[in-house]
Amino acid sequence: MGEVLLPLIDSHCHIVFREFDDDLELVAERWRNAGVSALLHACVEPAEIPGIKALADQFPELRYSVGVHPLNPQDWRPNSIDVLREAATADKRVVAIGELGLDLFRATNLLEQLEILTAQLNLAEELQLPVIIHCRDAAAAMLELLEHRRIQGHQLTGVMHCWGGTPAEMESFLEFGLHISFSGTVTFPKAHETHQCARQVPANRYLVETDCPFLAPVPRRGKRNEPAMVRHVAERVAELRGETLEQVCIQTSANAALLFSLPYQAFV
């Protein structure tokens, strides 16, 4: 990874997953050696919250979100909003609501997903927290919902995580005030639209992430992903933007720290 440790923030990871059960301390050693000074752990369903909280106790550089993923409707209960609200207000290390959103690639239950999404967006607004949005093959529906909410006067901050849309879609989400986060997919040779998005996204509006254990970047594609590999994402984004790795590391870390109220200076 190199001797000079440039600051990096992995803005979306899932190290609570069982893929890390056997070697998490080694994984943490590698992310620290790679210069990853803060991580944002995304939540996909309420049952994960105690485990993620325990990880935040174990690793002081970790902050986390609480939420229900659009592909986990079976985990939504009548009291889910109360559970999420209680978790978010009980721990100052909860800095976002999500991973929420829409996924029409693996599911077709749009109305059910919209109901769960809307409830969580309302909670984020109530608590004045940013959202982490998963949106796969559902940009039109997501933009329609966000426009409807904007007309009604709702406020929104957050990030389009693991970006894989078109440049035109990106511009629309940017207009709603959202950030764009690039994962290992930006390193894939055929991800041409994602490459173009990385080139044209404003400097103060993008992040980098791993979404580990998924989507390991080139040159580790097909392997288990982990937070240290966010450096490969940053390297590819730097190439695409014609910038130095240092510029991308500093800019994306500052962007993530500002969006999610991360104590970035404490880790640099």
Rank of each mutant, 00 (worst) to 15 (best):
H134K: 00
Y64S: 08
G177N: 03
W76E: 04
R30P: 08
P130C: 02
L5D: 01
A238S: 06
L240T: 01
I52G: 04
T187S: 07
S80P: 13
A234E: 02
P189G: 03
L114P: 06
A107T: 12
R149Y: 13
D75C: 14
P46A: 02
S65P: 13
E193L: 14
H232G: 11
L123D: 04
G242Q: 02
L258G: 13
E239L: 15
T89P: 11
A203L: 15
R231Y: 08
L174S: 09
L71G: 04
V68F: 11
V159C: 07
E126W: 04
F20K: 03
P7R: 00
C13G: 00
Q247L: 06
D23L: 10
R77L: 12
A141V: 13
R199K: 14
M170P: 02
A141T: 09
A96M: 15
R205E: 00
E147H: 13
I250C: 11
V68Y: 05
E86W: 07
P263N: 04
G177C: 04
P217C: 08
V94E: 07
L40F: 10
E144R: 15
A140I: 05
E48Q: 13
S183D: 03
E3Y: 14
A88F: 09
R241Y: 01
P213R: 04
L5C: 10
R106Q: 06
R30S: 09
N109T: 15
P202V: 01
V186R: 01
A47L: 10
C249S: 15
R221W: 02
A256G: 08
L71C: 04
S11G: 03
A168K: 14
S65Y: 05
L111H: 10
R32K: 04
M170K: 07
L123A: 07
D103C: 04
Q74M: 07
R30C: 12
V186Q: 00
V36Y: 00
A139I: 08
P46W: 00
L117E: 04
Q265W: 09
C212M: 11
R32A: 12
L259A: 13
C197S: 07
A107S: 15
R18D: 11
T108D: 14
I81D: 06
I49Y: 01
A88I: 03
Q196L: 13
S65T: 10
D91S: 12
L114M: 12
L143Y: 11
Q152D: 12
R136M: 09
Q155S: 14
V208P: 09
A168N: 10
L26C: 08
E246N: 06
G184H: 08
L245V: 15
A168Y: 01
I9E: 00
L39Q: 06
H179W: 09
I97D: 05
T108G: 12
E61F: 12
L62R: 05
G101Q: 02
A28Y: 11
D23E: 02
L62Y: 03
L100D: 04
L215H: 12
A119C: 14
